[in-house]
């Protein structure tokens, strides 16, 4: 240390400057995770909402404004598909990025996907958002890449955002993941109450207490503030599992103890939805709550958490308790999220 200090005093300014330059250069080389090309991009900081877990973003796809804008353009663009559909044809912002339906598998809504590591109703996809988007593009949409490479705008946009000369499936996936990661819903009445900016009505407060206490023990799986636990569970919708669509996570593991296991639904914006569960079997929230109250069916793969300390899986809610839970669930509607112009078609 002493050597450094005494020597520095005697060094001419030009040498000090060149040393500093080398320093800066080597810093850029050794610490930067992506190529120099990103230095031209505008960084974007994703703010972590209160009490959310750590946000994990791959080193090679750090957020920048240009990339998010590109992902947003793709999300609303039917060029991705071969039949005129865009992601937004089914994932509609005003409905909480889902689309109302009845008695079929509901379109999974998009909110806070950045904090998931298990995807689809049956948990059949896992990994990063980038990996999931790669699946969406290559398998679900079977995107024709030549349409992108000969497109009047995309080649320049991808060159700018990712320095890619040829647009690949990975590039599309990375850009889509950038946009989807910004679909953050954390400004519902529930969030405002938690941060002291609003208060629950008496009924909502009662529902909140049931939800987060042992009376309902909903929190065990729908853990606030994400309202999911990123795990799969069998909540006793059926007692036998011959129908493949009801087998759930069993498809991924072949393990009979996973029969009927579905990923814990994220209840954000649940009040906007019109059909519920992996097959859309319920058409209003009261029916869902009736299920937890009296409808849970026993089977060898029923989730351990469904049998409460009195030995029963039935919670026997009163009419008032059901109303309270419903009122509470509706406080998860985030009206700024579904109308935020930054998330709509540019």
């Amino acid at each position: 240390m002493r050597l450094f200090q005494t020597s520095q005093k005697t060094l001419p300014a030009s040498i000090v400057v060149s040393i500093l330059l080398v320093m800066l250069l080597s810093m850029a080389l050794s610490c930067q995770k992506e190529s120099n090309q990103t230095t031209r991009l505008k960084p974007y900081i994703i703010e972590l909402p209160n009490s959310f877990p750590r946000l994990e973003i791959p080193d090679d796809n750090q957020p920048y404004m240009e990339r998010i804008a590109l992902g947003r353009k793709l999300y609303y663009d039917s060029t991705l598909s071969n039949d005129g559909r865009a992601c937004a044809s089914c994932h509609i912002q005003a409905q909480g990025f889902t689309k109302s339906s009845q008695n079929v598998m509901p379109v999974l809504h998009h909110a806070n996907l950045a904090w998931k590591n298990l995807y689809m109703w049956d948990g059949s996809q896992s990994g990063s958002l980038e990996e999931l988007m790669y699946f969406e593009v290559t398998e679900f949409f079977n995107t024709n890449l030549s349409k992108f490479n000969s497109h009047p705008e995309y080649p320049a946009l991808f060159k700018e955002a990712y320095n890619s000369s040829t647009i690949t499936g990975e590039d599309l996936a990375k850009a889509l993941a950038q946009f989807v990661r910004t679909l953050i819903s954390a400004n519902s009445k529930y969030d405002q109450v938690m941060s002291g900016q609003a208060t629950f009505t008496e009924l909502e407060a009662k529902g909140h207490a049931i939800f987060t206490g042992e009376r309902g023990s909903c929190y065990h799986c729908h853990i606030p503030p994400l309202f999911t636990d990123n795990r799969v569970h069998n909540i006793g919708l059926d007692s036998t599992y011959e129908i493949p669509a009801n087998q759930g996570y069993f498809h991924s593991t072949g393990d009979s103890s996973h029969l009927g296991h579905m990923r814990t639904a994220n209840l954000r914006n649940i009040g906007l939805r019109s059909s519920f569960m992996h097959d859309g079997r319920f058409n209003d929230l009261k029916q869902v709550l009736e299920h937890y109250s009296n409808g849970v069916k026993q089977s060898p793969s029923l989730d351990p958490v469904m049998i409460k300390s009195n030995g029963s899986a039935k919670l026997h809610f009163t009419t008032e308790e059901i109303e309270a839970l419903e009122a509470f669930l509706k406080t998860l509607t985030d009206s700024t999220f579904i109308s935020n112009p930054e998330l709509s078609q540019a």
């Binding site: 877990p53 750590r54 207490a209 853990i223």
Partner: peptide, 20 residues
């Protein structure tokens, strides 16, 4: 306590409710 250390997505399921 909630926020007492950085919790990963994987361990998010270990949450213990405030009222307990």
């Amino acid at each position: 306590y909630h926020g007492g250390f950085e919790i990963s997505n994987d361990d998010y399921d270990m949450y213990w409710p405030i009222n307990l």
